[in-house]
């Protein structure tokens, strides 16, 4: 029973990082209605730049955070300019494949920045874990959970309460009409993309600070975990993204405890597969969102 609760706690904490990754993903998908496979690799560029200043100039944690987020945002804007902005609304697949080509580019760029396979990443908090009766709570885990909740509330507020969010929702509803009422569609979309990349950058920083190491595999890992959590939680839903991340984290923690890492991943994909087949709209999503998304000529 103690193990069960402890696993659940660990799962929730790790799930928070999945939720954060899914949050950035959902933001991009919600606005663009297209899949950005370069999402994780953009975050990795930020992480590598952060690692670079840490390794080369032994920069402090604040500088590493700023560098990671800034790098992710710049890489994100690069992806948006190259893969999304120039493509017609009907060319969703082309955008996706293009973002995959840029993934290759970003991965190589990261290797050019830092050629070794593994690098150390500065830890977030090194103190002893809090003890709650028989249970242990890591401080960096708690910080991650807090960040996930705060950021998702912040994003929710911006989308549903601010003028910028209103503009974005207008663009999601009908880009042409949004343009006609005087919304600068291109800039708004780019800003949304930059914001999503910033959320991703924060998520990436937290994950790596807990892991304390970074490898070129991180880009793919971030894209996959973000994607799974987003799909489980429900496309286009902000609370869904966080909830999906938490569910994924808890399921993974329990299967890891009982069966080891290979089965853990297997169970994660089984959960995703079952979710899609049985309830495609996810826990909190709206079904039509993706139905029309990357289909052939769904103008």
């Amino acid at each position: 029973m103690i193990d069960f609760v402890q696993n659940t706690i660990d799962g929730v904490m790790i799930g928070a990082s999945y939720g954060l990754l899914a949050l950035g993903f959902t933001l991009i998908f919600g606005v663009m209605r297209r899949l950005n496979l370069s999402y994780g690799p953009s975050i990795m560029i930020g992480a590598y730049l952060g690692t670079l200043i840490y390794v080369q100039f032994s920069a402090g944690p604040v500088a590493v955070v700023v560098m990671t987020v800034l790098g992710a945002v710049l890489a994100g804007i690069y992806v948006e300019r190259l893969c999304f902005a120039p493509m017609a609304a009907s060319a969703g697949i082309a955008s996706m494949v293009s973002s995959f080509a840029i993934w290759m580019q970003l991965e190589q760029a990261a290797i050019l920045i830092l050629p070794r396979h593994t690098y150390p990443f500065p830890p977030l908090a090194t103190g002893a874990p809090l003890e709650l009766g028989p249970f242990l709570l890591r401080i960096d885990h708690l910080m991650m959970l807090a960040c996930a909740l705060l950021l998702s509330a912040g994003v929710q507020y911006v989308i549903y309460r601010s003028r910028f969010g209103l503009a974005l929702r207008a663009i999601i509803g009908n880009p042409v009409a949004a343009h006609l009422v005087g919304i600068d569609v291109k800039t708004s979309v780019m800003l949304a993309f930059a914001g999503a990349s910033a959320v991703g950058g924060i998520a990436g920083y937290l994950v790596l600070a807990i892991d304390q190491q970074v490898t070129p595999m991180f880009g793919m890992w971030a894209t996959m975990k973000g994607l799974i959590a987003m799909m489980i939680g429900g496309l286009g839903s902000i609370p869904g993204a966080i909830l999906g991340g938490l569910v994924l984290g808890v399921v993974e923690a329990h299967s890891l405890w009982h069966f080891g890492p290979q089965v853990r991943d297997l169970v994660a994909y089984l959960l995703l597969f079952a979710c899609l087949v049985l309830r495609p709209s996810g826990i909190l999503g709206d079904a039509p969102a993706a139905e029309t998304s990357i289909g052939r000529r769904s103008a």
């Binding site: 790790i14 994950v207 807990i210 892991d211 595999m217 793919m220 991943d265």
Partner: peptide, 8 residues
Amino acid sequence: PRPARQKH
């Protein structure tokens, strides 16, 4: 066992 991405 290897130091893989799956450690997260």
